[in-house]
């Protein structure tokens, strides 16, 4: 019972999918991870940090 609950909800097994462009050949899984990294990095730069508003700055 516990074991079946722990089985994957979305199976990533089965033939892989690849992005092929000239000599670039990368799995969509890796491409997703790398794209997410870039998006996360850019978001971290631009999204306002919550603590900023209330300026409880002490000297």
């Amino acid at each position: 019972m516990a074991e079946s609950l722990l089985a994957a909800l979305v199976s990533l097994n089965g033939p892989g999918h690849y992005f092929h462009w000239h000599w670039i050949d990368i799995s969509y899984a890796n491409l997703t991870v790398i794209a997410l990294m870039v998006v996360t990095f850019v978001a971290a730069l631009f999204v306002p940090f919550p603590g900023r508003r209330h300026k409880k700055e002490t000297k």
């Binding site: 990533l12 089965g14 050949d25 799995s27 890796n30």
Partner: peptide, 25 residues
């Protein structure tokens, strides 16, 4: 068949559709 050959950028690939060692790009 699993797209893991060196000439297939296989070093960063994982079997199936799992992300692999992207840090080896």
């Amino acid at each position: 068949q699993r797209h893991l050959l060196g000439t297939q950028w296989g070093m960063m690939n994982e079997t199936g559709n799992y992300p692999g060692q992207a840090w080896l790009w």
